[in-house]
Design a protein around this nucleic acid. Structure first.
Length: 393
DNA sequence: GCGACAG
DNA sequence: ATCTTGTCGC
């Protein structure tokens, strides 16, 4: 049932979205609200989270949303929740949240239900006791922070409100925005100046402000790792100052992409491969071996349905594998080939025309009422296989 | 030879 | 995002 592209969102929907963003934006807090954020070493911070949504190649509807929680500062995965979902909104630059956030909110909800102790801000006390758990969710290009009541205008997006803010406000969790590519807004571009400034970033942690034509600071370009020359673009998500966001991001980077995001990315991809099998649409140019690979254990979703279809609904859907001695195909022992965000060559073909509604139509941005189709729940207790060498250029 | 909007 | 390749630069 691969859905087809239908068409661009109605103008009125965009208006609604913009309005929604404006409303949520008013609740964003762009300052440090947690004690650990002020500490040079983030003492007191014990958990960081990451989220990501991966897509199925030839499918504009199916995707996998993952949420992970890592220990800090060790950065070991303590919890993973990967869930197949059906997208209902098209990708539109500037409105990414309406496409992905609902599923992330769901994931956060499940985390709260299943593993309250790992929920960011779980110990948050109104009067400011130290928060020993922070959830710095991220979505490839965005982490999050919490909600609040101020109005920051230092966000690296058209209307100054992206996924990090969106998710942060909806979940009431701390967030940071991180992008791998520079979003060109307010005059920002990769001009000579930008490259020069980038060149000056010598060591991991170095950064420079991204200033729009207007002079406003939209975020900061950060060299996330000593051996990574291509910067990361950090912006305020919520409940954290830009400075703290940059520091935290840096401290979470074993490679260019912050570990929480990276893990969510790797795992969401993996989940797709396991549940949907190898490259679905036979990649032209190379015929895949017709026979199923190793064990059928890979696709161990219930009913041989691979978790798709109206089988499991709302909630646990604890399918197939459980950490109790499952075949090596289980999440825990599989070697990660997912190396690292590879440097992207600039020569790239154009293949872009997303704006379309996958299926239903506009949907509730509040994140209620989603229906996971397959779900790999549960806390894991073992850090994944060691990372294969991931080199930055 | 290329490109320009998070994913 | 995804694919694939390969490393910079206009």
């Amino acid at each position: 049932m691969a859905q087809e592209a239908v068409g661009p969102p109605p103008e009125e929907t965009l208006s609604l979205w913009k309005r929604e963003q404006a409303l949520l934006k008013a609740r964003v807090v762009d300052q440090d609200t947690e004690a650990w954020q002020r500490d040079p070493a983030f003492a007191g911070l014990q958990r960081v989270g990451g989220v990501d949504v991966s897509f199925v190649k030839g499918d504009s509807v199916r995707a996998c949303a993952s949420l992970v929680v890592l220990s800090y500062p060790e950065l070991e995965v303590l919890y993973e929740d990967s869930c197949l979902v059906r997208l209902t909104a098209p990708y539109l630059s500037g409105f990414l949240a309406f496409r992905e956030v609902p599923f992330l909110v769901d994931a956060v909800r499940r985390l709260r239900e299943k593993e309250p102790s790992l929920v960011p801000q779980a110990d948050h006390r109104p009067h400011g006791s130290t928060t020993d758990r922070a959830f710095c969710g991220s979505c490839r290009s965005s982490w999050w922070t919490e909600m609040g009541c101020s109005t920051p205008e230092v966000i690296l997006l058209p209307r100054g409100f992206g996924v990090a803010c969106h998710l942060g406000v909806l979940t009431d969790l701390p967030c940071v925005g991180v992008a791998k590519k520079l979003l060109q807004v307010d005059g920002l571009e990769k001009d000579a100046l930008h490259r020069d400034q980038t060149r000056l970033l010598r060591a991991g942690g170095d950064s420079f402000p991204l200033m729009g034509r207007s002079g406003a600071v939209l975020g900061r370009a950060l060299r996330s790792h000593d051996r990574s020359s291509k910067p990361l673009y950090v912006s305020v998500g919520h409940k954290m100052s830009l400075e703290a966001a940059v520091r935290l991001t840096h401290s979470c980077c074993r490679f260019r992409v912050p570990e929480p995001v990276r893990q969510a990315d790797i795992r969401s991809r993996d989940h797709i491969r396991r549940t949907l099998g190898g490259p679905q649409p036979p990649a032209p140019g190379r015929r895949a071996r017709p026979v199923s690979r190793v064990a059928g254990a890979w696709r161990s979703c219930r009913g041989g349905r691979c978790g798709w279809g109206p089988s499991s609904q709302g909630g646990q859907a604890v399918g197939g594998r459980s950490r109790s001695g499952q075949p090596p195909g289980s999440l825990v022992a599989r070697p990660q080939h997912g190396v690292d965000a590879a440097p992207s060559p600039r020569h790239h073909r154009k293949a872009r025309r997303p704006k379309a509604w996958p299926e239903g139509g506009p949907q509730d941005p509040s994140g209620e009422g989603r229906t996971p189709e397959a779900h790999s729940p549960g806390p894991r207790t073992h850090p994944e296989a060691p990372d294969p060498g991931a080199q930055e250029r």
